[in-house]
Amino acid sequence: MTTTIELTAKDFKGVDPDWCPGCGHFGVLNSIQRAYADVGLQPHEVVTVSGIGCSSNAPGYINTYGMHTLHGRALPFATGVKMANHELTVIATGGDGDGYGIGAGHFTHAARRNVDITYVVMNNQIYGLTTGQMSPTSRPGLTTKSTPFGSIEYPYNPITSAIMNGATYVARGYSGDIRGTTKLIADGIRHKGFSLIDIHSPCVTFNLENTHDFFKQRIKKLDEVEHDASDWKAACEYAMEWGDTIYTGLFFEVESESLSQLDPILKEGGPIAKRSLPLTPEQADRLKSRLM
């Protein structure tokens, strides 16, 4: 028998973060820990998987099973964990460079597969750990160490991309809004299928444009405009807006069977990881007869 007791966010605390003071990621970390408690999870039932980057240090700061993996590869690792043991709750975390740059291919396909992973991206529109270069979500004109005359590239839109790729739960949060972000993450965990929660999480050291003040002046909640989250076209329109108003909240949600619900191999026999390894005599006989 395993233990089931009601836990609080504190029970999910790991080692203390070494992020810069004032980093937006503290708010996200707090929200993840609260969401785990709100959903009623136990630390050993959760695997928090990350790639590489400032935000990807999160698994060490969280008291669950953690995998701090390779740059851009959080989603494949997380997919492997989830498909081999679909009883586990699997959360992938990381940054915009990790998820939308080097890992963009995996993001597309994890969304398309509707694998039941909650993907929490701490989007600060900059490469922080490498000391300040343009990221896929940097806005045109942003001056960074790799774009001293300002970025001239069109920014990646995680929300519209996720919707187009088939994600079934797509939300945007802001790390300054812990209560709102916690709810988005918790609902994402409850959602069966691939959920993206893209969270604007300012880098106070290297992105001096997209600051807490910048977001505080612009953030507007979708709740205030009575957005219908089943309407993907409206969701994309709201997601494309980036000016005086930046929307947060649940953009899109649709009920659709997740990969583990669809794969016939999981209909019976329990999680792949818990299956007995040796072949049964009947299985071996079938393999032998196929040779003849």
Partner: peptide, 11 residues
């Protein structure tokens, strides 16, 4: 990487 993730669960 999926192979490693799955192996981490014991498969």
């Amino acid at each position: 990487n999926i192979v490693i993730g799955a192996a981490h669960t014991g498969a």
